[in-house]
Design a binder for these strands. Structure first.
Lengths: 364, 364
DNA sequence: AATCAACATGAATCTGCCT
DNA sequence: AAGGCAGATTCATGTTGAT
C-alpha cells in the first residue's frame, strides 16, 4: 500500500452505510480507492411495466418491439451511468462482481465489456431449492448468473486459488456453484414478519466471492446494499465494507444486522496460500551452503543426468544453463520446473532438490 | 399446420446442407417458414499466446479464422445481421436457441432482446468433464450458456413439458443441465485422425433441446451447421433440418455423418442423468453455509482438537490441511475419514460433522 | 481374456518479476 | 516498454498398450 492509497482510504467512510442514490453518492467518493465492488442491481423496476403488462396481444408487432427497445434503452442508460462512476472508484487492480438473471444480465455483461472491464469468469449460482415453474410453461428458473471482471485487461486481480481449492476439498473451484437460496433464520424479516427484502442473497454466496477475490483488510463497496449481506460477510471475514442504499427501511434492517455480526478470529482467516507467495531461493545457494557439491551429478525421473557447477548452473550433453533451462532442453519441453525435476542420491535414495529449498526457506 | 405453411415448407430445401455464408443463404429462403433455429455462432475468443498443460503438452486452441473479429463493434454488427435475417425466417410461433460463452453470450442476449425476441429461459450447460484452468488463475470454465427465446413476446412457442419431466426422472426440468462434453466415438475425426471440428457439440444437448421445444415433423434451421450435430439429432427424432455451412471440409463430414443416421433408434438412449449415488460434499460448504463458524474447535473421540478456518481447512498443532489430512496426521495414521472422525459440541453434546453433510445432501 | 497403467485431450480471453 | 527468465500449474474420461 502506498502512502497515497492509505491517505485516500483514510478518507473513505469505511464500514458504514451511506444514504442516497448510488450514482450520486459514488460521485462523492475518492477515485481509485476500492478493491472490490459487489453489485446486485435492480432489474424489475425499469422493466416492470413492460414485463408484466396485461395481455394486449393485438398490439402491432413493430410497435411492440419498439416499446421493449425503449425500456431497454432506459435500463441501459442506468447501467452505463452507475457502472461508469463505480469504475472510477476502483483501484487499477480492482475487480467487480455483478449478479443478475436473464432479464438484465446480458445487458450488464455487454456494458461491462463496452466500458473496458475485462471479464474473468461468468459464474452460475445453481440454486439447490428454487421455486418451481408452477404453470409448467418453461424450465424451472433454477440459477442466477454472476460476472467477475477486473477493471482493465491487464489488472493484477486478486484470486485466492488455493483457498477456493481447499473450500472444494482439494479440487479446483469451478464456475458453477451449488448453494441454497436464503431461507430460514438467515432470511431477515420486517416488523410484520414478512421478508424484509425481496432478493436477499445467501451469505454463503458472498463468503465464496469475498474469500476468493479479496484479501483481509480490503475495501469492498456494494452500491445496492439492500439488507447488507455483503457488509455482514465482509465484517465476518475481516474486510472493510462501504454500503450505499436508498431505502430507509433496508438501511435500518442492515444497521441492526451489522451490529450483531462478530468477525471471525484472525487465525481462522488465515487461508491456504500459494507457493508463488513464498520467497525465491536461487539454486546457487544450495551449492554455496554445501548442500550440493560442484561436480555432483543430478538425475531426472526420465533418466537424464547433469553435472552441478560451482556457479549454480548445470551442464549436460553440451547444454549449459539454469536447472530449469537444462531440464527443458533435455526434455525438449517449452519449460521445466527444475526444482521438482532434478534429484540427487543421498543414502542410496534419489532425493528431490526441492527438499533442500524447503530447508533453506524454513531457516529464513 | 395450415395449408399456407405447408406450401412454404414444400419450397424449403428440407434435410439438406446449404453451402455459403449463412446471411446470404438465409436471405434466399422463404419468410415465416421455420419452426426452430439452433445457432452456435463463433464465440470471438481472444487468445493471446499458447497454453500448455502442467505436463508441458500444448492445448489445441480454437484459433480458426472464422472465430476472429476485430472489435466488439464488428462482432455486434455480425450478430445484428444474422439474427435479423434469421428472425425473418421464423414462423410467428417459432423460437430460437443460441449458445455461447462469456466472451459473446452477453452481446448475443442483448441483441436478441433488442430485436424483439422474447427470452423464455437461459439454460446453463454444466459440463461434467470440462478442461481445467491449468495455470490456476481463474475458476474452471465449466459451463456454457444457452438462450431460448420465442420470436415475439406473445408467441405460442412449443414446450413439451411432460417429455422433459420424464427425461428428468419425473421432476420438472431445471435451467441447468449436466451433460458431458463431446468425446470418444461421438467425436468426429478427419482423415488424419484429428478432430474434424474444434467445437463439436454433444448430441445429448441437442436431444434435449429438440425433444423439449419442437414437435415431430417440425423444421429446424442451423445457420452454423459445422459437422451437423443439429441435423443428426433432428433426423433421429423425426424432425426436418436445414443446415448452412460455409466450410467445405465441415460440410463433407456432416454429409457422411447424416447418411449413417437412422431415425427413432435412439430416443430411449439418453444416459445423461447418471445421478451419482452419493454426491460429494466439500467440507468447506459447512463453513460457507454457516453450519460451522471459522474459529470453532472440532474434537475427536481420542481427545484431539482442531480449529476450523474460513477456507474449510483445519489447523492443529502446527498441522494444516483438510479434515482428512489433519485427522490422519494427529493419529499418525496413513489415512483418516474426517467426516466420522471430527465432532463439534452442539447443545452440550458432541455431534459428528457427518450429520451436517447428510443435511446438505438431503437438500441437493 | 481381463486388468491396470500410461497416455491423450477438451470453445481458454491462463504468470510475475526483474532489468 | 519490452525482453528475459524463474518456476508454478490439471480434472474427467476415453483410448492404447503392457502384463
Amino acid at each position: 500500500m502506498t502512502t497515497r492509497t492509505r491517505k485516500e482510504a483514510a478518507r473513505l467512510p469505511l464500514d458504514t452505510i451511506l444514504e442516497g442514490d448510488c450514482i450520486e453518492v459514488m460521485r462523492g467518493l475518492p477515485e481509485a480507492s476500492v478493491d472490490l465492488i459487489f453489485a446486485d442491481p435492480p432489474y424489475n423496476l425499469q422493466l416492470k411495466g413492460e414485463l408484466h403488462r396485461p395481455d394486449n396481444s393485438r398490439v402491432d408487432a413493430v410497435d411492440d418491439a419498439w416499446d421493449q427497445f425503449g425500456s431497454f434503452a432506459a435500463y441501459d442508460q442506468f447501467t452505463r451511468d452507475w457502472l461508469a462512476v463505480a469504475r472510477r472508484l476502483l483501484k487499477p487492480n480492482g475487480a467487480i462482481w455483478v449478479i443478475g438473471s436473464y432479464h438484465n444480465v446480458f445487458r450488464l455483461g455487454a456494458e461491462l465489456q463496452n466500458q473496458g472491464f475485462w471479464i474473468l469468469n461468468d459464474v452460475v449460482w445453481r440454486k439447490s431449492n428454487p421455486m418451481p415453474n408452477f404453470r409448467g410453461k418453461r424450465l424451472t428458473n433454477a440459477h442466477e448468473t454472476l460476472i467477475w471482471a477486473s477493471r482493465d485487461e491487464g489488472s493484477k486481480y486478486t484470486f485466492n486459488y488455493e483457498a477456493l481449492k481447499a473450500l472444494n476439498e482439494g479440487i479446483q473451484m469451478r464456475s458453477d456453484w451449488v448453494l441454497p437460496i436464503c431461507t430460514g433464520h438467515e432470511r431477515l424479516k420486517d416488523a410484520k414478519g414478512d421478508k424484509a427484502h425481496p432478493t436477499q442473497k445467501p451469505e454463503s454466496l458472498l463468503h465464496r466471492v469475498l474469500l476468493g477475490t479479496t484479501n483481509a483488510g480490503d475495501v469492498v463497496l456494494d452500491p445496492f446494499f439492500g439488507t447488507g449481506t455483503t457488509g455482514a460477510v465482509a465484517k465476518m471475514l475481516g474486510r472493510h465494507f462501504i454500503g450505499i442504499e436508498r431505502e430507509k427501511a433496508y438501511r435500518d434492517v442492515a444497521e441492526r444486522r451489522l451490529r450483531d455480526v462478530r468477525p471471525f478470529d484472525r487465525s481462522a482467516l488465515e487461508v491456504t496460500s500459494s507457493k508463488r507467495s513464498e520467497p525465491r531461493v536461487p539454486f546457487g545457494q544450495l551449492v554455496e551452503r554445501g548442500m550440493l557439491r560442484p561436480g555432483e551429478m543430478l538425475t531426472s525421473p526420465s533418466g537424464k543426468a547433469a553435472k552441478v557447477r560451482a556457479d549454480g548452473t548445470l551442464v549436460a550433453d553440451g547444454v549449459t544453463g539454469s536447472i530449469h533451462q537444462v531440464g527443458a532442453a533435455l526434455e525438449g519441453a517449452p519449460s521445466c520446473n527444475g526444482w521438482t525435476y532434478w534429484h540427487i542420491r543421498r543414502d542410496g535414495q534419489p532425493v528431490s532438490i526441492d527438499v533442500f529449498r524447503q530447508q533453506i526457506r524454513s531457516e529464513m
